[in-house]
């Protein structure tokens, strides 16, 4: 199984440790993982804004970078959603279809493809609030959502549950969007920041020490709000916890 690692722009720039943890974690399962160094972005900022034509060249580059892999894995559900469900600016060739259907968010790759049942190296004795990115939750269906009458499930919780010492903190509005929303975070800055502040307040009330998520983008926004508010919360990507980070 040849795996291509996609490290989204946010992670590349601000959270290289998340990329490193993802790479190391995948390698722990004996996978051959490559990171094509000429990768940039999945095209989401343009598509998200409606500028599909402007996204075309970025999408082409993505397919050129990742066409040769059996699976493309990325520590971002939002980017996975873009590739899998919205990469429509370019002609849908076999290569494009292959890349789109083979791109997985890290948690679902571990849960559904590798069917991992233990992380013996992982221990995280802290109280943790889980945040699901909205694309990851409602489009990739990484967990059951409160809007629907369905059997409760959560792939990230199932994986985190295998980590020694972890304790979950419950939010009052666990599925509420944090207000990042991609370009929304700058075009509609006022509402975006208010939603972020409300999310941080909910996390604080839950008694969490850490917030974790499989999406760095939401956490970058939440962490930005938390710092400005002077909130004592730490944000850590799920890849790091699963890879054995202690704190």
């Amino acid at each position: 199984m040849k795996v291509g690692l996609f490290v989204p722009c946010y992670v590349d720039m601000f959270h290289p440790e998340t990329g490193i943890a993802t790479l190391e974690l995948l390698e722990r399962f004996g996978l051959s993982v490559e990171y094509p160094v000429d990768q940039t972005c999945c095209g989401q900022p343009m598509t998200n804004t409606g500028c599909e034509r402007e996204a075309a060249k970025t999408e082409e580059l993505f397919v050129r970078n990742f066409g040769k892999y059996d699976y493309i894995v990325t520590p971002s559900g939002s980017c996975t959603n873009q590739v899998r469900n919205n990469m429509t600016a370019i002609e849908q060739t076999d290569a494009v279809k292959h890349v789109r259907s083979r791109t997985y968010e890290l948690v679902e790759f571990l849960h559904d493809v590798l069917k991992v049942d233990a992380f013996p190296w992982a221990e995280f004795p802290h109280r943790v609030a889980l945040h699901n990115n909205c694309n990851t939750l409602r489009n990739l269906r990484i967990a059951s959502m409160s809007e629907r009458r369905e059997e409760p499930f959560s792939k990230p919780k199932a994986l985190l549950g295998m980590v020694k010492g972890i304790e979950f903190a419950d939010l009052t509005r666990p599925d509420e969007c944090c207000g990042f929303g991609g370009t929304f975070s700058v075009f509609e800055e006022g509402v975006s920041a208010k939603m972020g502040q409300d999310k941080v307040t909910d996390q604080l009330k839950s008694g969490a020490e850490y917030v974790t998520s499989s999406d760095s983008s939401c956490m970058m926004h939440q962490e930005g709000c938390a710092r400005r508010m002077g909130a004592n919360l730490k944000y850590i990507h799920i890849a790091q916890i699963l890879n054995g980070a202690r704190a």
């Binding site: 490290v7 992670v11 590349d12 720039m13 601000f14 959270h15 290289p16 440790e17 998340t18 990329g19 490193i20 790479l23 990171y35 160094v37 975070s185 700058v186 075009f187 800055e189 920041a193 972020g196 502040q197 970058m220 926004h221 962490e223 930005g224 709000c225 710092r227 400005r228």
Partner: peptide, 26 residues
């Protein structure tokens, strides 16, 4: 800079993942 009005800007790490990878793995 609408980002920074009510949110802190993330700290910049010493190197990007891409640089780390080129140095340590490539």
């Amino acid at each position: 800079n609408t980002w920074g009005r009510k949110r802190d800007i993330p700290e910049t790490p010493k190197q990007t993942f891409n640089e780390w990878y080129r140095k340590n793995r490539k």
